[in-house]
Design a protein around this nucleic acid. Structure first.
Lengths: 99, 99
DNA sequence: CGGTATCCACGACGATACTG
DNA sequence: CAGTATCGTCGTGGATACCG
């Protein structure tokens, strides 16, 4: 469990991973999907995810540079967990407050 | 998803919840199960979980005091998520490092 | 037994400005 | 476009000592 928790640790890492489950995304795509996330933090999260082997990054040559972030096979293992996060969130919202 | 993430936010909150899925636990039980967790942090996590309505606490009268923490119906909703965390953790460990 | 009180360290996060 | 640099805030967590 601690291993899985480390993978999704931090609120933003999880939301970045969710976006990537829908397909490859550029740096700007990710920023557009997470409007309140600063460039610095996004860079930090991506660096961490790449270091953990969950995400890979490819860059186009030339200028301006284009990047493409995508999930590795290891990153794809997180999909069921992300789906369960979604389902559990819905169940919690359905529950009457304070009972 | 953000709702579910909030529920298990923090590494320790999740591990406390896991212990409670096995039944009611006293403060000492929980400490024994999480040896590296300080009393202060355990108290903080429990207070937070109670405030979120996921855990309840009952105290025996007399001295020395005995407490019993258990999951509420809302807390029980987290069970599938905790199981998925376990399964995902195992899958990540099976994966060859760096691929 | 079941906590509090203090203090401190570190990482996550945010805002703003700037660069290859 | 895709970041880096700098600075500051906040929450989580650890250590130690103490209390009802």
């Amino acid at each position: 469990m601690e291993v899985a928790l480390a993978a999704i640790s931090g609120r933003w890492a999880t939301l970045v991973l969710r976006d990537l489950t829908h397909g490859p995304r550029s740096f700007s795509d990710l920023r557009a999907g997470l409007p309140t996330l600063s460039a610095k933090v996004l860079t930090e999260r991506l660096d961490g995810l790449v270091a953990q082997g969950l995400v890979r990054c490819s860059r186009s040559p030339g200028f301006p540079v284009r990047t493409s972030y995508s999930l590795t096979s290891k990153g794809l293992l997180l999909r069921p967990l992300l789906e369960q996060l979604y389902r559990t969130g819905e169940a919690l919202l359905d529950e009457v407050p304070d009972h």
